[in-house]
Structures are given as C-alpha cells and as structure tokens.
Design a protein around this nucleic acid. Structure first.
Length: 196
DNA sequence: CGATTTTGACCAGCGC
DNA sequence: GCGCTGGTCAAAATCG
C-alpha cells in the first residue's frame, strides 16, 4: 500500500488550526457480536467517495499534500488457507495532530513491529490489541513532512468492551483538537454518545 | 516474574 | 522471474 485513500488532513492553507479527521468503513457483521459495532466498528459514519489511486507518483506523493478525495470504507480480505474463510475487517484511518504517536483510545496495544516505509522518513509502528481473541490491529504512521501529524489506522473491530471509561475518549479529544469542519461529524460527537 | 518493547529476519503480494 | 515494499513473527532485552 503506498498511500491510503486518506486524503484528509492537514490542509496547507488552513493548517493553522489543528485538524482531526477520520474515515470509517462500517461493515461489521462478522462475529455477529452487536457489541462490536460500537467498540471500534461503526464508530464514524462512512463517507464513501472515489478512490484516487494515483500510485503513479510514488516518491513523495504521499508525503506531500495530496488530499482531495474523501473517506473510504476499505475492507481487507484476509484469506490464508484454502479452507480458511475470508474474514473481512473494516479499516479505519484518521489523521490527528498530536505530539505523541500513541493515543490512548481505551484499549491495550502491544507493539509487534516497526517498519520504515518509503515516502516517509519516520517508521511506521504496528500495534495489536492484547486481548485474547481480539484481532484488532492498529498502525501508527507519522508524516515525514509534518512530524506533528500522526496517521493512525485501525483494522478490525474489538470484540470486547473497552478497558477504560468513555470519558477517556474525551481525553483523546483533548490531546487532539477536533476539527469541526463538518457539522455532521462534530454533531455526532457532541450530541450522541457513540463511544459507550 | 510477567508483560511489553525492540530489532532483525522472514515471507507474501505486486510491479517491472 | 526478480526485486522491492510492506507486514508479521520471533527471540532477546527492558520495564514495572
């Protein structure tokens, strides 16, 4: 994967204010656990749009400010063995502006890898949920251009309740200011308690 | 002492 | 078919 369809983020012009964008692919039906939806599945409303899939530039395309597209609901098909059933796990990505890479989202993560990706001077870290049976993965990437921008990509849905209280998420919002460019988003955040 | 991080190696998918 | 890039594993080290 060269560059995620996440074309959000730090608008060059309006970079003054902190930005907090996220994309969500809501397609949680496997596992059949209704609880999964909130924990990490359908947190945000999925805004599907076209996929630029430029891929051409390659070099510093990602690093640069190549935004324009929109959200996307990416579904990763995990097929291992012949008989193995393909498990579709939604993938969420959101960009935050924070000094710390690791944002406490209420879950426990264990780092299982770190790789330096191209177009990025900073390495990408791979985390995994430590809970048993929870195959949620998360990867944190930092933009080489703006070290203050951290791209966090969640993969999968949690099958267990959060460790901490929901207020915790507020704390996250404290760490990163919410960019209420879309009323839709901010509304959902403020009014509804989607994070229970 | 247990859990977690660190780091290198290994492997798989894709492009050329 | 080979090489590159990205993702994961696994053993050792470190922290609490």
């Amino acid at each position: 994967m060269e560059n995620y369809p996440i074309l959000f983020g730090t608008q060059p012009s309006s970079s003054t204010s902190n930005s907090y964008h996220f994309v969500a692919g809501a397609s949680s039906h496997h596992h059949g656990q209704a609880a999964g939806n909130n924990t990490g599945g359908g947190l945000f409303s999925a805004s599907k749009q076209e996929e630029p899939s430029d891929g051409g530039g390659g070099d510093d395309g990602a690093g640069s400010s190549s935004q324009g597209g929109g959200g996307e609901a990416d579904v990763v098909v995990v097929g291992k063995k012949k008989g193995e059933k393909r498990e579709r796990r939604p993938r969420f990505a959101f960009q935050t502006r924070s000094q710390v890479d690791i944002l406490d989202d209420g879950y426990r993560w264990r780092k299982y890898g770190q790789k330096a990706v191209k177009n990025n001077n900073f390495p990408r870290s791979y985390y995994r949920c430590t809970h048993q049976g929870c195959n949620v993965k998360k990867q944190v990437q930092r933009l080489s251009r703006d070290e203050g921008v951290v791209v966090t990509t969640y993969e999968g849905t949690h099958t267990h309740p959060i460790e901490k209280s929901n207020d915790n998420f507020e704390h996250i919002l404290t760490q990163m200011q919410v960019y209420s460019g879309l009323n839709n988003v901010s509304q959902t955040f403020g009014n509804q308690h989607m994070f229970q």
